[in-house]
Nucleic acid binder design. Structure first.
Lengths: 151, 151
DNA sequence: TGATATTTGTTATGCCGTATAACTATTATT
DNA sequence: AATAATAGTTATACGGCATAACAAATATCA
């Protein structure tokens, strides 16, 4: 006995009606990918947010917290805890800016740079597995289409 | 004075390095789209989750809570509050199944069906605005690419 | 048939991401 | 010099999501 036939539609993925909404497909697919990414990062002591922040800091040493938050599309206030985490792990340092003593310049440490490289490779490997069904061209096409969505 | 040149990379979107990760682009784009969808639904007393559940129930009347949760990729436990909300708004009813008294069949009310249709149209309209930069073919292409991502 | 396992809906709880308001120290404006 | 704006910070709250535990009902199988 397979059970469940209270419903009218005997089969056919129950969320078919939702699939006409692009946002729904995006959300489901993204949930899969990010959950996977989180799993990859976790053993390295990173979360998606902290990895993203670390990456920006490694690629733009001296960046300010406000710039960082804006780059990642997060609130300044929420970036504080993320940066705290990175600092406590000794992957970055906070340095008060000389010419604007309100601002703080974020600098990656050697350990931070190493950890970022390691995590980046792990993520690339994992994405390669996750997007194995898509060719390189299709992956680029996907990213390109996503980049053309505008609020 | 434009300010900020503590950083080395003078310009060039601070998150460029993250853009090599497809998941990052997916997450940012999805955040935009879902935030927008939430804004559309809010005046109708719906959130994305409740709208999704209502839609499934309207398209598969009699569906069980467990089936619903599975269809939406959420935990059974988390579906309870969502269904509570829909029930309190009188958009659905819970009916104990006769042949399995553990199970509950979810039925949409007339008001629920109307609200779903209204919300669906509002979302379609809004998606049309949000994906205006993509042709119909490109939108289908995007969804198709997303559907081919596998865990 | 009767003991045991499984399933359904449910409650409780906690974590993460996110949003807003308010505060301070500092800098910019006028 | 007075006022406004900005950078970082704290506190707080909400929504999404995950896990564990439980009662009631059903399924399994010795």
């Amino acid at each position: 006995m397979t059970g469940q036939t209270d419903s009218v539609l005997t089969e056919a993925a129950l969320d078919t009606a939702l699939r006409e909404l692009i946002g729904y497909s995006m959300k489901r697919a993204t949930a899969m990918v990010t959950a996977d990414a989180a799993r990859v990062l976790e053993p390295m002591g990173l979360r998606i947010t902290t990895f993203s922040a670390l990456t920006v800091i490694c690629n733009a040493p001296g960046v300010r917290q406000t710039e960082l938050a804006a780059a990642l599309g997060m609130e300044r206030s929420n970036s504080v805890a993320v940066i705290d985490t990175l600092e406590k792990a000794h992957w970055i340092t906070r340095e008060r800016s000389a010419r604007d003593r309100r601002a703080i310049a974020l600098q990656p440490t050697t350990a931070g740079i190493m950890r970022q490289k390691q995590a980046r490779l792990a993520l690339l490997t994992h994405e390669d597995r996750m997007f194995a069904g898509l060719s390189q061209i299709e992956r680029r096409e996907l990213v390109k289409l996503l980049s053309r969505i505008r609020a």
